[in-house]
Simulated assay, not measured.
Amino acid sequence: MPVVSSSPARKPRRARAAQPAPPLGSLTQVQHRESAACGACGSERVTQVAMSLTDGTPVQFVSCHVCEERSWRSAAGPLTVDAVLDRTRKR
């Protein structure tokens, strides 16, 4: 006896175009480190991460290993912690 499925036929998904990944930096390998500096103390011992906030704003997050300063910068300039929190809230 043939098996009959009650679920509708699924359409095949369209493949997304692959986006090239940005080069990754490194804290341990000098030749792969990006030249970023802390805005507070000037140290180059920072971790820098590119990310998109919940509202789609692309930002650079920088965390200093010397003075522990953390900052976010968008294309429009530096963002305060309150501005980052406002942009990351789900509505």
Rank of each mutant, 00 (worst) to 15 (best):
R14M: 07
V3G: 05
V81L: 13
A9V: 15
A17D: 12
P12C: 05
T80W: 00
G77Y: 06
A17K: 07
R16E: 07
A9F: 11
V62F: 01
A76Y: 02
G56T: 07
V66P: 07
A76Q: 09
W72S: 08
A37C: 05
S74G: 04
R87S: 10
L85F: 00
P78I: 05
L27D: 04
C67H: 03
V84G: 01
R13E: 15
H65L: 15
R45A: 11
C38R: 02
T80C: 08
A75D: 15
R89W: 10
R89L: 12
A9M: 10
V59W: 06
P23D: 14
K11A: 15
D82P: 01
R16F: 04
V30A: 02
P58S: 03
W72Y: 13
R87I: 04
A40S: 10
E34L: 12
T54A: 13
H65M: 10
P78D: 10
Q48I: 15
A50H: 10
S52F: 10
P23I: 10
L27I: 02
V3F: 04
A75P: 08
V49I: 15
S7H: 00
S43D: 01
D82K: 02
Q48P: 07
C38L: 01
R89C: 10
P2Q: 12
R13W: 00
H65R: 15
H32E: 13
A18P: 01
K90G: 14
V4H: 03
S74C: 01
P78W: 07
L53C: 03
Q48S: 14
A9K: 06
A83T: 02
P12W: 01
T57K: 00
T28N: 01
G42T: 06
T54L: 15
L79F: 05
S6C: 06
V81Q: 11
L27W: 00
C38N: 04
V3N: 14
R87F: 01
A50C: 11
V84L: 03
A40P: 00
A37Q: 07
T54E: 09
C67P: 02
A18G: 03
R70P: 04
Q19R: 07
P78T: 07
R70A: 11
L24P: 06
Q48T: 15
R10V: 13
R14S: 08
K11R: 12
T54I: 09
A40N: 13
T47V: 14
M51Q: 12
F61Y: 11
R13Q: 14
V62P: 05
S7R: 08
D82W: 00
T28C: 00
P58E: 05
S74V: 04
T54P: 06
A9S: 11
G56F: 06
